[in-house]
Each structure stands twice: as structure tokens, then as C-alpha cells.
Computed example of a mutant assay.
Amino acid sequence: MAKRKVHRRARKILGEEPVALVWCEIHKPIPVPPKEVHRAAGKGRLKPGHHWLLYVGATVFFFVVVPMILIDKLGKKIDRMLGARQEPHRQTPGTRNNAGPQRSTRDRGSAGGRAAHPADGVFDGDWHLTAGQLLLRWYGHSPNPKRLVMLAHDRICVAASPRRRLSPTRADDFRSVAEFPLDAARTEGEAGQPRGFATFRIRFADGSWLQVGRLGEPEDADHFLRTVSA
């Protein structure tokens, strides 16, 4: 459960004790918007920032692991060539050729499926409405994917921490990045969802909606979902 200092910070922002709060994330990658829409919104980032250890790991992978894999494959290829000279009637290459078109067909089918669902369950799909505009600026407020959604008696507040890494139970440097009165937005969710898979939606008055998941601390998540489902 979020520590007292988190609630204290939330109370300072809202001017009252929050009815419910929970840390959450966009649980899927943000779809790629049309270029003109992205440009009009300031061409902000559409992906979260990564910790420096990730870049170190990627460097080690490309400069150490990849060369070792290539050397290993080269060695196996040389072994196969030598073996083919001794056994000229071996049919292994034909087997490899049969696998290629099958993978291509699956890839084309997957690509077609993604094209048919551009919003991918993240939002309603209209970039010009409230949810789409909020998504376009989602990571401009903070490179960290986590957002704190706070419910007050008269509004919904979305807050973010400027840090790349944070502890949902201890972070107390978050600031409000968007507020919506209850006649402009409402939250929708179901209580009792499996932990780790629970999601809820913020539905806006213009008909657009945004779905988030990866909810934070179990106690906060359960209380939040019970509140919005009541």
C-alpha cells in the first residue's frame, strides 16, 4: 500500500484526501499516430525511457553475444559443408527451404491483424479526441511509464513523477499533468479482477476512452476498482 507521504502529496495536490488512488501504466505500446497528427501535437515521445542498465546490456549483447553467435553459426555451417562432401545425397537443405514460406505467411497474417486493429485496445482510435490527445503527450510529462490516477469528489487527476525509476509505494515527487471534472471524465472498472491482469478505463464526455493496466500495489488497486465499480 502507498506510504503516508504519497497520500500526503496527493492531498496537497487535490486539496482533500483522495477517494482512491492507484499507480498504473499504458499496458500496451502506444499505436503509431498519423504523421500530421503527431507533428501537430509537438512530436513528443511515444515510448517510455529506459534505465541506463538496459543500454549497457544492449551494448554487451551486440558486441559480445552477437559475435559469439555468428562464430558458432559459421562453425556449424563449415561442419555441414564438410559433411555434405562426404554424404552428397543428404536432403537437409530442402527441409530448410520448406520452412521459409510458412514463416512468411504467418508474418503476413500477423501484420494484417495488426493493421485491422490500429488502436490495439489502448484507446478508442480517434487521435483528435480527448483520449488520443492525452496519449500523444503521455510520455512528454515523464519518461517513466507509471502514472498515478487519483479520484477526488469532484474530479479525476492524472499525475506523473519526473524520475525514470520510482517505487509506487514511496514516490512523493509526482505532479499533476491532467485534470478532468466528473462531468468530463469518469473511470470504469470491475472489482475482483485477477491481480496482474486488472485494467480500467477513463471514459471522456466526447466518447473517447483510454484503457490502462499494470496496476500498482494490490491494496490500492483493489480499493480503486471497488470504488469505480460501485
Rank of each mutant, 00 (worst) to 15 (best):
K77E: 09
F197I: 08
N144Y: 06
C157A: 08
P93I: 03
R147M: 12
R226W: 04
S104K: 15
V19T: 12
I13N: 01
D222T: 15
I156F: 02
Q133T: 06
E179P: 01
E188W: 15
A221N: 05
L148P: 00
G94K: 10
G189S: 09
H128M: 02
G125T: 04
L166T: 05
K77P: 00
L134M: 13
S176Y: 00
R155W: 04
G75S: 09
I78E: 07
F197R: 11
Y55N: 11
A159P: 01
I156K: 04
K77R: 08
R170G: 03
L215P: 01
R103H: 06
P67Q: 06
E36Q: 04
D206Y: 03
G140V: 04
I156W: 01
V37G: 07
D183G: 07
R80T: 05
E36D: 10
G83A: 15
W138D: 05
H128D: 10
R114Y: 13
Q133L: 14
H223L: 12
H50K: 11
I69P: 00
T227R: 14
G94P: 06
G15V: 02
Q91R: 12
R96A: 09
M150Y: 00
R114N: 13
F62T: 02
G207H: 13
R226L: 07
S104V: 08
F174V: 00
L129T: 12
R90G: 09
P162G: 06
S229A: 14
G57W: 11
C157P: 01
V228E: 05
F180A: 07
E188T: 13
V149E: 05
E188K: 15
P67C: 12
S110D: 11
G44E: 14
L53A: 07
M1I: 08
W127G: 02
P168Y: 09
W52H: 14
A20F: 03
D120K: 05
L70F: 13
N144W: 05
P48Y: 11
L53C: 06
A198H: 01
K76Q: 12
V60G: 04
T199R: 10
R175L: 01
I202W: 00
A84C: 04
P18A: 03
Y55M: 12
G189Q: 06
G49C: 02
K35M: 03
G125S: 08
T199K: 09
A115V: 08
G216N: 05
W209F: 11
R85C: 06
R137W: 06
W23R: 03
E217N: 12
G196C: 07
G121A: 10
V122K: 01
K5V: 09
T187C: 13
W52P: 15
R80H: 09
P181N: 12
P29T: 14
M1C: 05
A41R: 02
R114G: 13
P34Y: 10
A160D: 02
S110V: 15
S167L: 00
K12T: 11
G109H: 13
